[in-house]
Design a protein around this nucleic acid. Structure first.
Length: 502
RNA sequence: GGCGCUAUGGUGUAGUUGGUUAACACGCCGCCCUCUCAAGGCGGAGACCACGGGUUCGAGCCCCGUUAGCGCUGCCA
């Protein structure tokens, strides 16, 4: 039998990185065993589900390169089937109508309410299955329903016994029926609830392995009960450890902002392969020390056995912009940027530069060689795709800003540079051929002649030509920026205009 | 409150059927390289393997307890 797994997010917001990782693991597992990876949108909560969210999920998966094999299933399309199934369970006697009026609950303190109620229940030793309608006769139940009285449908959980399943990550899980209340399958407005819908859809989609977050671990027992009521064998389960915030609390958009949203990584210049690689290592580890892995390698090495049980902390600092996300993710992105084939990097850069209005079509034809050489030079010290249009702006445009700290350090400290630099420009005009080696020879010769350290001219030039105090080897920079532009920039008065004010 | 899960340096993780100086990556520090900053090379700090008991000749690995964190406990998903 072919393995079939699914990623089943609810479209109630951006795609959370934890969800993205769940999708990744499902995808890797499916590809590793030659199975199929399906996508199901769990939009049963009509109030909170949005189309924008569905789009962001689809875009996110696409960005990560996680293609799904069949048509997307929208859970809301199966309402009627779910309803019918619940009603059949009443017929079968494994579920019953609960005519208790719906309790109104304010959304705000719902968590607190649940805890309080549970505390009270356990303190007073309330029987979970003391529902007065549980043993209502079928005739009476049918009569009241026919009379139009609203009812919820609850699963009838046996008083004694337990459910048990083998989790591929957490091992044998057992839970006494006494711990499980008669869960609601259908709301009194006849809206099917999560546990029912999941089971029914998983059955219909032929899901063989359910891989999802550990937050579903205990509820799995409820779902197994539903499978049993339905007379269907449950799939295999594998629960994934959670991804936590630095304080080991829940990682949420409300508290932590955009770091938790997958699209943030796309928008802030991550290479999808790098983020995917980083995500794969959160909670899973291969059987070797190799950490940089292509999708193919990840697929080949992936196995549920490599998944750990302890929750992972997503390590970032909210106060330090340089560590706005996990340092290792940032490192990995830089690693990808400086080592990936240019052929793969260039299309991403094209998009980035285009968005910043720095892209020129020539880069793809006449100036392709120059473009790739430049990219190859500057990518060595960039961390994100954004760096190419920001820090790297001077390579693609004559309109760039000067870093005040760089001006101060490399120019204003030595006013003589105001004369030296134009002289250097004159020397450079004579350099032939225009190569890093010849430029270096000319600059060093001039430094000797002017009796200044070469470093002085080099650092000053860097600031004049790029606006920065740091960057690649200056002679390479000269070469790439070109004779003409280099000379003009060395003679520019612009960088000196702020001298008085600093 | 009940039930469940987890616990290896700051973070992510390795630690094979219990047996060496507890390994790798990120981060941090230093040195080298050097025109700056990275990268790279070399080296370093940092973990009495949550704590307390056992079992054993021997435990990070097994057992019990404690503590902490997390999850579930909803007519949310």
């Amino acid at each position: 039998m072919t393995i079939r797994v699914r990623f089943a997010p609810s479209p109630t917001g951006y795609l959370h990185i934890g969800s993205a990782r769940t999708a990744l693991f499902n995808w890797l597992y499916a590809r590793n065993v030659g199975g199929r990876f399906l996508l199901r949108i769990e939009d049963t909560d009509v109030q909170r589900s949005t189309e924008a969210s569905t789009r962001s999920i689809i875009e996110g998966l696409e960005w990560l390169g996680l293609n799904y094999d069949e048509e997307i299933v929208f859970q809301s399309a199966n309402f009627e089937k779910h309803r019918a199934a619940a009603l059949r369970l009443i017929e079968a006697g494994t579920a019953y109508r609960d005519f208790t009026p719906k309790a109104e609950r304010s959304d705000a303190d719902i968590k607190q309410g649940i805890a309080d109620r549970a505390r009270a229940a356990s303190a007073e030793g309330t029987d979970h299955r003391s529902n007065p309608y549980r043993e209502l006769s079928m005739e009476e139940s049918n009569r009241r329903a026919a009379a139009g009285e609203p009812f919820a449908v609850r699963l009838k959980v046996a008083p004694e016994g337990s459910t048990r399943f083998e989790d591929a990550v957490y091992g044998t899980q057992e839970r006494s029926y006494a711990e499980i209340e008669d869960l609601v399958l259908l709301r009194s407005d006849s809206h099917p609830l999560y546990n029912l819908s999941v089971v029914l859809d998983d059955i219909e989609m032929g899901i063989t392995d359910v891989i999802r977050g550990q937050d579903h671990l205990t509820n799995t027992h409820k779902q197994i009960l539903i499978y049993e009521a339905l007379g269907v064998a449950p799939p295999r389960f594998a629960h994934l450890p959670l991804i936590l915030a630095p304080n080991k609390g829940k990682l949420s958009k409300r508290k932590h902002g955009e770091v938790v949203s997958l699209t943030t990584y796309r928008d802030r210049g991550f290479v999808p392969g790098a983020f995917r690689n980083f995500l794969a290592l959160l909670g899973w580890s291969p059987d070797t020390d190799q950490e940089i892995m292509t999708l193919e390698e990840l697929t080949r090495k992936f196995s549920l056995a490599g998944i750990g049980r302890a929750n992972a902390v997503f390590n970032f600092s909210e106060s330090d912009p340089r560590q706005w996300t996990d340092a290792k993710a940032l490192w990995m992105n830089a690693e990808y940027i400086r080592t990936m084939p240019l052929a793969e990097l260039v299309p991403m850069l094209k998009a980035e530069l285009r968005a910043s209005k720095l892209w020129r079509e020539e880069y793809e034809e006449d100036e392709r060689e120059w473009f790739e050489k430049t990219v190859d030079l500057i990518r060595q010290r960039f961390f994100t795709l954004k760096d190419f249009s920001e820090q790297g702006r001077a390579y693609f445009s004559d309109d760039f800003d000067f870093d005040p700290a760089a001006q101060k350090k490399n120019l204003y400290k030595e006013p003589r540079l105001k004369e030296l630099l134009p002289d250097l420009a004159a020397k450079l005009e004579e350099v032939e051929p225009w190569t890093a080696a010849d430029i270096e020879a000319a600059l060093r010769a001039y430094a000797d002649e002017a009796n200044v350290k070469a470093g002085l001219l080099i650092n000053a030039s860097r600031t004049m030509l790029t606006g920065h105090a740091v960057g690649p080897s200056m002679f390479e920079v000269f070469e790439v920026i070109g004779r003409e532009r280099s000379v003009v920039r060395l003679r520019s008065a612009l960088p000196w205009s702020d001298m008085e004010s600093m």
